[in-house]
């Protein structure tokens, strides 16, 4: 328990560092945001007023903590392009992206673990070759191109779904998820391929170790050797891998939702970057960074549960 408290403290420190990084990054931008915002209306007075209003005349640490305090309450300031509170802009869009990421991750875990075990169990034989070849190809496809392909084949040629269609979660939950399946597949498939390859080689590596021989010498069936002895060992590195995959899936979701025209956070982010709407960019980056840090934290906990060598050190 003591250990958990230590980890929680580390988590808070990491979150603080990450927010500081997110804040400072956008302070070193060349050019004055006020000058840019005022454009042709620029006068000394107007600029001074605007600085006052935005709190830009205060010191850096002061500004950081007031920004952070705002962020904690969900107040990220006002978007310069939409003239709306940033939190209102992000609100629903964040949920869409998160649902997409969660669904994709679910696909990855549910599909890749059995396939990886299967490939390792029959390594060198037909089943393994087919799985390995397919995953080799799938790994090479960028998620957004896969999204385009899926739209082309299942949306346009087969008409299984309406490209660009969308209903919100409140309106029609079933419809919402049925639209989410395709982009989720586009995000998940390359990751599934990578995870299968990783798990396969992890299992094969474990199968060469001495304890496997011991397990066989006890009179275990081959399937018991694999599932009872090898699997837990082989999954330890895979957990770390899946943690990194989860972060990638989140990033992939942001790109892929452009392909399917989903009203997620990605479109907002890209538009805001193009228009230099830093308040919005900063807020989105902070959300994503927090998500990544929390994922890492959870992976760390899970890792400890699996590996006694780490747990008891």
């Amino acid at each position: 328990m003591n250990d958990l408290i230590k980890k929680l403290i580390m988590l808070v420190i990491t979150l603080l560092l990450v927010s500081a990084a997110a804040f400072i990054t956008f302070q070193i931008i060349p050019g004055d945001p006020v000058t840019a915002a005022l454009g042709t209306d620029y006068t000394e007075e107007a600029a001074e007023q605007m600085r006052e209003a935005l709190g830009l005349n205060r010191s850096l640490p002061e500004r950081f903590f007031s920004w952070l305090w705002g962020a904690v309450r969900g107040d990220f300031g006002t978007s310069m392009q939409y003239h709306q509170p940033v939190s209102a802009l992000i609100g629903d869009r964040l949920a869409v992206t998160l649902w997409l990421a969660v669904l994709s991750m679910l696909f990855v875990i549910v599909v890749s673990i059995p396939l990886g075990i299967l490939a390792a169990r029959f390594s060198g034989r037909a089943a393994d070759r087919v799985i390995t070849l397919l995953s080799q190809i799938a790994m090479a496809v960028p998620p957004f191109f896969l999204g385009i392909l899926l739209t082309l084949v299942f949306g346009i040629v087969l008409s299984w779904f309406t490209p660009g269609g969308y209903v919100s979660l409140e309106q029609d939950p079933a419809g919402f998820f049925s639209y989410l399946i395709w982009p989720a597949a586009a995000v998940a498939i390359p990751k599934i391929a990578m995870t299968v390859k990783f798990l396969r080689s992890s299992v094969i590596r474990q199968m060469r170790l001495d304890y496997v021989r011991t397990a066989r010498s006890k009179g275990n069936k081959e399937s018991a050797v694999l599932l009872r002895h090898v699997l837990k060992n082989a999954l330890i590195p895979v957990v770390t891998f899946l943690g990194m995959a989860a972060a990638d899936v989140l990033a992939g979701s942001i790109i892929v939702e452009q392909v399917f025209g989903l009203p997620g956070i990605g479109r907002l982010l890209v538009v805001s970057i193009s228009n230099r709407d830093y308040a919005v960019v900063q807020a989105i980056i902070l959300y994503i960074a927090f998500a990544v840090v929390v994922i890492n934290f959870l992976v760390d906990l899970l890792y400890q549960r699996l590996d006694p060598r780490v747990r008891l050190n």
């Binding site: 170790l209 304890y211 011991t214 397990a215 002895h229 837990k232 330890i236 699996l306 590996d307 006694p308």
Partner: peptide, 9 residues
């Protein structure tokens, strides 16, 4: 060392 499974008691 290596002949025993590291993740079980």
């Amino acid at each position: 060392m290596t002949s025993l499974n590291p993740v079980y008691t």
